[in-house]
Simulated assay, not measured.
Amino acid sequence: MFEIPKLKHTTSGNFFLMAGPCAIEGEEMALQIAERLVSLSDKLQVPLIFKGSYRKANRSRLDSFTGIGDEKALRILQKVGQEFDLPTVTDIHETEEAAMAAEFVDVLQIPAFLCRQTDLLVAAANTGKVVNVKKGQFLSGEAMRFAVDKIRQSGNDKVILTDRGNSFGYSDLVVDFRNLPEMQSNNVPVVMDVTHSLQQPNQSSGVTGGKPALIETIAKAAIAVGADGLFIETHPQPSIAKSDGANMLPLDQLEDLLTKLIRIRQAIR
């Protein structure tokens, strides 16, 4: 895999982990989660990238939480990275956000619904940062080669692809694990977004639902198939999280899950 700045424990043979809260809710919460994640990363030798959205642009309702302010949230992400010597990732939504966010984080993430937006992919590529593209819920893994091509042809070969399930009916998602090896055929690291793949979007209330009880199932299957990394949103109290609490993993359950997944990784290697 290409080098990700500040990524540690890369010689352990373990999968890497993108983890953190859905959205940056405040500095104290972000630092609390990061401290626990770093502790687990060091203990279990799992390479870690801290994840947090500085703004949530894709919300069902106008009154949904979207963020605490772009610059404020980005500076919190920057502080997390500096204080724990840790790479960070956040998602961007429009072309002008790429250069702005690149000043604060190490990895720029393209949301699934925007994975075909050429100008956005090119803007992210032009920053020189690692670009993590989430596979659209409406695409096959094979089709993601075009997103990879757009970034590489813009002069950036630091690409990660992430699966987050496929739309199934109007209010559910399913995971087709064929997508992982199909995306790996592009010679890029492939991540399984465990928590978002368990969303139940478009609920009548306007608040996305989820099936967090299946987090372990999806994560185990992804590692068994050979995923290079996992994306897991986690929070000390998902029930009061300001975004996507319905499908997040409680922070105190993460160590047990990672321990089981490491055993699977060792078995398949």
Rank of each mutant, 00 (worst) to 15 (best):
F104S: 07
F104W: 14
F104Y: 15
F104N: 14
V107D: 04
Q109W: 13
P111L: 05
P111F: 03
P111Y: 07
P111G: 10
L114R: 01
L114S: 12
L114N: 12
C115I: 03
R116T: 02
R116I: 04
D119W: 00
L120P: 07
V122F: 09
V122I: 14
V122H: 00
V122D: 00
V122M: 03
A123T: 06
A124V: 01
A124F: 05
N126G: 07
T127C: 11
G128W: 11
G128M: 13
K129G: 02
V130E: 02
V130H: 06
V131S: 01
N132T: 03
V133M: 05
V133G: 05
K134T: 13
G136Q: 10
G136S: 04
G136A: 04
Q137W: 03
Q137H: 13
L139Q: 13
L139Y: 11
S140Q: 03
S140N: 06
G141Y: 08
G141H: 10
G141T: 09
G141K: 10
E142L: 15
E142F: 15
E142P: 02
A143V: 08
F146S: 15
V148M: 12
V148L: 05
D149M: 01
D149C: 05
K150G: 10
I151K: 07
I151L: 02
S154A: 15
G155E: 06
N156R: 07
N156Q: 07
V159Y: 00
L161Q: 00
D163A: 13
D163I: 06
G165R: 00
G165E: 00
N166L: 15
N166S: 15
S167H: 11
S167L: 09
G169V: 01
Y170E: 04
S171Y: 06
V174L: 14
V175I: 10
V175R: 03
D176T: 08
N179C: 15
P181N: 06
P181H: 07
P181W: 15
M183A: 06
M183F: 13
Q184S: 13
Q184R: 12
Q184L: 06
S185L: 10
S185W: 08
S185I: 01
S185G: 04
N186Q: 13
V188E: 01
P189N: 06
P189R: 11
V190Y: 12
V190T: 13
V190C: 11
V191T: 11
